[in-house]
Amino acid sequence: MPFRGIAVGRPEEATHPDALKAALAEGISTLIFVFAGEGSGMAFDKLTNDASTTPAGLVAVALAHALGLFVAVAVGANISGGHVNPAVTFGAFVGGHITLLRGILYWFAQLIGATVACLLLKFTTGGLSTSAFSLSSGVGVGNAVVFEIVMTFGLVYTVYATAIDPKKGSLGTIAPICIGFIVGANILAGGAFDGASMNPARAFGPALVSWTWENHWIYWVGPLLGGGLAGVIYELFMISPEPTHEPLPSNDY
């Protein structure tokens, strides 16, 4: 049950080698993801004279994020769980699957990884600016917050169903690609409206490097609410100690 399994963790956990190794894995995975995602937008702008908001640009950016996250989750899954996102970490915390102290370590690592990725992009592109997330014309802050809540809910719900649920079975082997797909699909749905972050670290890196903070709070509040809500709902209604269906007899296979 949510809340029942929530734990702060012991102070020594913050310096335990396994926790530090997991945090490092989170930082590297987030760097890989943000470098590919942010870099795809910068590259498309350079090739098309700032046309990354065109339909073709949106598809290209969505594909880059989907592929980048697929790899980032896969390479971190066996070490840290492959969160690559403070909202995923928060959703896992609400469900009692990670302690508060370990979650804070993950958050720091994710934010640092995203920042380093954007600094590397700025250096390797000869000083091109990273693009902070922003709202499109006609989209209010309330609209954007709801967009981020809904999209991140879908993301974290997918993480629970394919990677966290103890009944996932062989479905866990395709968890990274499922997680990448939902992010790519959500970018196609919401990218033209608020950028479709779903990830506070993904928004933080470009904002810090470009020092653009307008409406930045949206990309924290929305994803954390969506991720926490997904964790609560999945733990309350979906996870059960017994199978929820009757297995088929072996001779039916």
Rank of each mutant, 00 (worst) to 15 (best):
G37L: 13
A203D: 08
L224G: 01
L225P: 00
V150Q: 03
I32M: 15
P249H: 09
A117W: 09
G27I: 08
S134V: 11
G222P: 00
G169C: 13
W213S: 02
W213D: 01
W213A: 01
L105Q: 01
N186E: 11
G195E: 10
G154W: 08
S137K: 11
A163W: 09
N143D: 15
G180Q: 10
A36Y: 14
I149D: 01
L111E: 05
I32T: 12
G37K: 09
D252K: 11
A77P: 06
D165Y: 05
F93Q: 00
A196V: 04
S197Q: 05
V141H: 04
A87I: 08
Y219G: 03
F44M: 06
D165Q: 01
V150Y: 05
L135Q: 02
G169W: 12
W213C: 01
C178E: 07
L119Y: 13
T48S: 14
G195F: 12
V232R: 03
W107G: 04
Y234R: 00
A92K: 04
A7Y: 09
A62H: 00
Y234I: 02
A196R: 05
W107R: 01
Y234M: 01
G113H: 02
G39V: 12
G91S: 00
N85P: 13
L135A: 04
L105C: 03
P206F: 10
A109Q: 03
V232Y: 11
G126C: 07
T152G: 04
A132I: 03
F44N: 03
I6W: 08
L248Y: 15
G142E: 07
G57F: 04
D18Y: 15
A77M: 14
L248N: 11
N251C: 09
F123P: 02
I239G: 04
A62D: 01
H16F: 14
F70C: 11
M151T: 05
G41P: 06
G95V: 00
L100A: 04
I112N: 02
A66T: 05
T54H: 08
G154L: 10
H16M: 12
K46H: 13
T173D: 14
T115I: 06
F147W: 12
I112C: 04
F133T: 08
S29E: 07
A87V: 08
S131C: 09
R102S: 06
I177T: 12
A64I: 11
H16D: 15
A201E: 06
T53E: 12
S136T: 10
G222S: 00
G91I: 00
L208C: 05
T30W: 08
L58D: 02
G138D: 05
V71W: 10
L155T: 06
V84T: 13
D252R: 12
I149N: 01
S197L: 07
A7I: 10
F193L: 15
A175L: 14
V94P: 00
T15N: 07
